[in-house]
């Protein structure tokens, strides 16, 4: 292993250990237990739920859609899926308060539906164009 890698690695361990020390010393056990639960849930939500859904969608899409549709569907899924994940907190409006009309004051659900339709339309158009081209 080169010197650069050793320096990077050791620096990483130090920085990470400082973070762990901060987390462990500034909160009580009940708080730490909740942080641990959240960290475990973070891995589980990605590795099982998100990744599993994508694998499932890929398997279904590959069988259900004709070949020329695969590319647009894949690219559409990347943009639509990741933006949807990012938008979960505003879509759910979980933080909305009746005493503060300046908070979460956009039509998020309508926007997301429009984004979904737009993605589907783009996939549809690209799929049809590509199908025609393959036939020709």
């Amino acid at each position: 292993m080169s010197a650069v890698r050793w320096v990077l690695g050791c620096l990483g361990v130090l920085v990470g250990a400082y973070g762990a020390w901060l987390a462990l010393t500034r909160q009580d056990l009940v708080q730490l237990a909740e942080v641990a639960l959240w960290l475990a849930a973070a891995v589980a939500v990605h590795d099982v739920l998100v990744a599993g859904t994508v694998v499932g969608a890929t398997l279904v899409g590959r069988r259900a859609l004709p070949r020329p549709w695969h590319a647009p569907a894949t690219l559409g899924l990347v943009v639509w899926g990741s933006v949807s994940v990012m938008a979960v907190p505003v879509l759910g409006r979980f933080g909305a308060r009746t005493d503060n009309p300046t908070l979460l004051d956009r039509p998020y659900l309508a926007t997301w539906l429009a984004l979904t339709l737009l993605t589907l339309a783009a996939i549809g158009v690209a799929g049809l164009v590509r199908s025609r081209r393959t036939e020709a």
């Binding site: 990077l8 690695g9 620096l11 990483g12 361990v13 130090l14 920085v15 990470g16 250990a17 400082y18 973070g19 762990a20 901060l22 987390a23 500034r26 909160q27 009940v30 708080q31 730490l32 237990a33 909740e34 942080v35 959240w38 907190p89 505003v90 759910g92 979980f94 933080g95 308060r97 908070l103 979460l104």
Partner: peptide, 30 residues
């Protein structure tokens, strides 16, 4: 989005501490 689905931990303390953890783990990974 002013959504606080956690009950016990402090966002500021935890987000700050785990930022160091994430960057440390990232350096190790690199």
């Amino acid at each position: 989005a002013q959504w606080y689905p956690w009950r016990e931990f402090s966002f500021r303390t935890t987000h700050y501490a785990l930022a160091w953890v994430a960057i440390g783990a990232l350096l190790v990974h690199v």
